[in-house]
C-alpha cells in the first residue's frame, strides 16, 4: 500500500494504491447510490418500483401531500419535533454550560449520565419509558412523546454545545470583565454571540432526533400522535408503493437542507474562532 504518494513507488505498490482507491470509490458509491436511485422512481408514471420508467408524473407526490394520511402525520412530526427541539436545546445547552464551568469532582460521571441515552439501545429506552409513563397516563399523549424524544435529543445538544464551549477562549470573558462588563453583560455581549452557532447546531440535531424516531413512537404514540416515520414503518411492513418513495425523497430533501444548515453553522463557528487567533 503506497502511502502519501511516494513518487518512486514500484508497479506492485501502485496496484495496491489503486486497490485502495477502488474499494474506497465503491464505498462512496455504496453510500450514495441507494439514495439517488430511488429519486427517479418517485416520478414513475405507473405504480411499479422498477426501471425503466413508464412515463413521468407527479401523482405520487400528490398522494404524499393529500389531506390524508401523510399530512396529519407530517404535522405531528413537526409539532413534536419543534417542542422537543425547544425543550432539549434549553435543557441541554444549560447542562453544557454547567459542565464547562463545573469544577467539582464527579463532572465526568454527570457527563456520562447525560450521554447515556445514546448508548442504551433505543428499544430498551422506549420500553422503559413506556412502562414508567404508563403510571402517569403519559402513554399515547403528546407530552409523553415529547418528553421521551427530549431524553433522546439532550445528549446530542450537550455534545454539540459542549464542543463549541470547549474551543471557547476563556480569556474572552476575562477581557470583557477587565473592560468593565459584569458577568451577565459579558455573557450577553461575548459568550452568547460566540457560542450561538453551536447552540443552533445542537437544536438542529435535537429536531432530527425527534423527526427520525420510529421506535419510541411505536411504543408511545397513540393514533392521534402518529408521526411520519411511525406511519411509514407500518406502510413498509405492509406494501411498498411509490407514494412512500416520493415521501422518502421529500424527507431526504429535508435532511439535505438540515445538513446544509449545520455545515453552515459549523463554518460560521470556525470563522468566528479563527478571528480570535492570529489573522496572518
Amino acid at each position: 500500500m503506497a502511502v502519501g504518494g511516494t513518487p518512486y513507488s514500484s508497479a506492485g505498490h501502485r496496484c495496491g494504491a489503486a486497490a485502495i482507491r477502488i474499494i474506497a470509490g465503491l464505498g462512496f458509491v455504496f453510500m450514495l447510490v441507494p439514495i439517488l436511485a430511488i429519486v427517479p422512481l418517485s416520478f414513475n408514471g405507473v405504480s411499479y418500483l422498477s426501471y425503466p420508467l413508464r412515463g413521468l408524473s407527479w401523482q405520487w407526490y400528490g398522494a404524499v401531500f393529500a389531506p390524508t394520511p401523510w399530512m396529519p402525520a407530517l404535522w405531528n412530526s413537526i409539532t413534536i419535533g419543534l417542542a422537543t427541539t425547544v425543550l432539549a436545546t434549553a435543557v441541554g445547552t444549560s447542562a453544557a454550560y454547567g459542565l464547562a464551568y463545573a469544577a467539582f469532582p464527579g463532572t465526568r460521571l454527570v457527563a456520562a449520565l447525560l450521554i447515556s441515552p445514546m448508548v442504551v439501545p433505543i428499544v430498551i429506552t422506549a420500553l422503559a419509558v413506556y412502562l414508567a409513563f404508563a403510571q402517569f397516563g403519559l402513554v399515547q399523549s403528546f407530552a409523553g412523546l415529547v418528553l421521551a424524544h427530549t431524553v433522546l435529543a439532550v445528549p446530542f445538544v450537550v455534545i454539540t454545545v459542549g464542543a463549541t464551549l470547549h474551543g471557547f477562549d476563556r480569556n474572552m470573558v476575562r477581557a470583557a470583565a477587565s473592560l468593565g462588563a459584569g458577568p451577565l453583560t459579558a455573557f450577553r455581549t461575548v459568550t452568547l454571540p460566540l457560542t450561538a452557532p453551536g447552540v443552533l447546531a445542537g437544536a438542529v440535531f435535537a429536531f432530527v432526533t425527534s423527526f427520525d424516531d420510529v421506535v419510541v413512537a411505536l411504543f408511545l404514540a397513540g393514533p392521534q400522535q402518529f408521526t411520519v416515520p411511525r406511519r411509514m414503518f407500518n406502510a413498509l411492513r405492509d406494501k411498498l408503493d411509490p407514494s412512500i418513495i416520493a415521501l422518502a425523497v421529500f424527507l431526504t430533501l429535508v435532511s439535505v437542507l438540515l445538513l446544509g444548515t449545520v455545515e453552515l453553522l459549523r463554518w460560521r463557528t470556525d470563522r468566528l474562532r479563527n478571528r480570535g487567533q492570529n489573522g496572518t
Binding site: L236, L240, A248, L251, S255
Partner: peptide, 16 residues
C-alpha cells in the same frame, strides 16, 4: 449526507 437521511428512508431505498 446518508448519516443525516433517516434510517427508515434508507431502509426503504434498499427494499426498492
Amino acid at each position: 449526507l446518508p448519516f443525516w437521511v433517516s434510517v427508515l428512508v434508507r431502509t426503504a431505498a434498499w427494499v426498492v
